[in-house]
Every structure is written in structure tokens, then in C-alpha cells.
Amino acid sequence: MPTVTWSRLNADRRAAVLAAAEAEFAAHGFSGGSLNVIARRAGVAKGSLFQYFADKRDLYAHITDVGSQRVRRYMEDQIQLLDPARPFFEFLTDLLDVWVAYFAEHPRDRALHAAASFEVDTDARVSVRAVVHRHYLEVLRPLVIGARTRGDLRAEADNEALLSLLLMILPHLALAPYVRGMDPVLGLDELSPEQPALVVRRYVAVLAAAFAPQPQHTATIGGEQS
């Protein structure tokens, strides 16, 4: 968490540090990111960074949180526009389309997401993924609970398994179209304009088959309904 000194810093100086840190960590991740570069670009002494944050990992986690909040605000606005009370798997299809489009149009947030996902330093990776997953789950869990309440999920459906699958699918859809070799099966790494939408529908079809209520089949006897 940022220190009290950070909270007292003027808005322009905070914005300069955030912009410099986002650019550096997006380009190089935690392990490759340089505090010297961040300080120089922000126009502050390197020692000042340690007055604002406990250490480099603390700064990295804060940058991840700021980026995650930005994405979250956008997606929460889109969720309301899409109407989350609609049948869940129809809504989920449209939501994933919006998610894919967001990361196509926001390369800085995509780069920060990639840095968090692919970080090689274990402690840093755990720290930033905890931040990202908290934002994911605070948005997704109420949607899944609402779907369960409305009967859009089977009574015996495992809500936590569905959430876990969504935690894997969302980062994959955000990054795979831009990272060669990340998805050699569904064609996301040989990108065509329509491919992400096709993949979204394949994923949702699999989730619906696993979690949606199954249609009732009426038994017949002698060609007549029983």
C-alpha cells in the first residue's frame, strides 16, 4: 500500500509517478522494470519512490491495482448497459465480446495484464495476481450468484468451479490474440477479425453445456407422450 507521504503528494506528481511506473512495468514487467527509469521519467529522485512505497513490489502491486480499477470501472459500466438480468449465457457472450474489444483498443492495459500474468518472480506474481483476482471476483461473483438465483444455472452447478473457469478464460481472451503460441488450438494466435468472437461462442457453449439447466425430455410410450 502507498505510504502517507504518497497521499500527501500533489496530484501532478502522483500522476507523473503512476504514468512512468505503468509505462516501465508494462514494457518490462516487475523483474525487468527499473526504478531508476521510473524516477527519471517521473522527475523525482529514486529515493523518493521509497518514501511513497515500501519497496519495488509494493509499487508494482499499486500500479496493478490502479490498472485493474480502470478496467473494472469500464466493465461495470458495460455490464449495466448489457443488462445482467438477461439469460446468463446470452449476457456472458456479449460481456466477453466487450472484454475482448477493450483489450484490443487499450494496449497499455493489455501490456500490464500480460506483465501480471507472465511475471517470473514468484513473490511479485503472487502479489499482483491477488490484486487482479480480487477485482475479477468482486465483479463476477455477484453475476454468478444472480444467475443461480434466477435459475440460469443448474441447481447442482458448482459456482466456484464456474468462477475458476472464468478466471482462466478472461485473461486468455485478453492476451492470446497478441501472444504467439498462447493458443494454438482455437486459432487465437493466427488472428482474423472474426476469430475472437467465434472463440467466445465456443467457450460459452462449453460453459452452458456444463452449467445451464438441461432441457426436460418427455418420455414416449408407443409413439405417445407419457
Results as ranks from 00 to 15, higher is better:
residue 86 R to A: 07
residue 86 R to M: 06
residue 90 E to A: 14
residue 90 E to N: 14
residue 90 E to I: 10
residue 90 E to M: 14
residue 91 F to I: 07
residue 92 L to G: 03
residue 92 L to H: 09
residue 93 T to Q: 09
residue 93 T to V: 14
residue 94 D to H: 15
residue 94 D to G: 15
residue 94 D to I: 14
residue 95 L to R: 08
residue 95 L to K: 05
residue 96 L to W: 04
residue 96 L to T: 03
residue 96 L to R: 03
residue 96 L to S: 01
residue 97 D to G: 11
residue 97 D to H: 13
residue 97 D to C: 12
residue 97 D to Q: 10
residue 98 V to A: 09
residue 98 V to K: 01
residue 98 V to C: 08
residue 99 W to G: 00
residue 99 W to P: 00
residue 100 V to L: 08
residue 100 V to F: 10
residue 100 V to T: 12
residue 100 V to N: 04
residue 101 A to G: 12
residue 102 Y to C: 04
residue 102 Y to H: 05
residue 103 F to G: 01
residue 104 A to N: 07
residue 104 A to W: 07
residue 105 E to R: 12
residue 105 E to K: 06
residue 107 P to W: 05
residue 108 R to A: 04
residue 108 R to T: 07
residue 109 D to Y: 02
residue 109 D to V: 03
residue 110 R to W: 03
residue 110 R to T: 00
residue 112 L to T: 03
residue 113 H to N: 07
residue 113 H to M: 12
residue 113 H to G: 06
residue 113 H to L: 10
residue 114 A to T: 11
residue 114 A to I: 11
residue 114 A to N: 11
residue 115 A to D: 05
residue 115 A to E: 01
residue 115 A to P: 06
residue 115 A to Q: 02
residue 115 A to C: 11
residue 116 A to G: 08
residue 116 A to H: 04
residue 117 S to L: 10
residue 117 S to N: 10
residue 117 S to C: 12
residue 117 S to F: 15
residue 117 S to H: 14
residue 118 F to G: 10
residue 118 F to I: 12
residue 118 F to S: 13
residue 118 F to W: 15
residue 120 V to R: 14
residue 122 T to K: 13
residue 122 T to D: 12
residue 122 T to Y: 14
residue 123 D to P: 08
residue 124 A to T: 08
residue 124 A to I: 09
residue 125 R to L: 14
residue 127 S to K: 02
residue 127 S to F: 08
residue 128 V to R: 00
residue 128 V to F: 04
residue 129 R to H: 12
residue 129 R to D: 05
residue 129 R to F: 05
residue 130 A to N: 15
residue 130 A to Q: 13
residue 130 A to Y: 11
residue 131 V to M: 11
residue 131 V to W: 08
residue 132 V to A: 09
residue 133 H to M: 06
residue 133 H to P: 02
residue 136 Y to R: 08
residue 136 Y to P: 04
residue 137 L to N: 06
residue 137 L to F: 09
residue 138 E to M: 15
residue 138 E to D: 13
residue 138 E to C: 15
residue 139 V to T: 15
residue 139 V to R: 07
residue 139 V to K: 04
residue 140 L to C: 05
residue 140 L to N: 05
residue 141 R to T: 01
residue 141 R to E: 03
residue 143 L to Y: 05
residue 143 L to P: 04
residue 144 V to A: 01
residue 144 V to G: 01
residue 144 V to Y: 01
residue 144 V to N: 02
residue 145 I to H: 14
residue 146 G to K: 04
residue 146 G to T: 00
residue 147 A to Q: 00
residue 147 A to C: 09
residue 147 A to W: 00
residue 147 A to P: 02
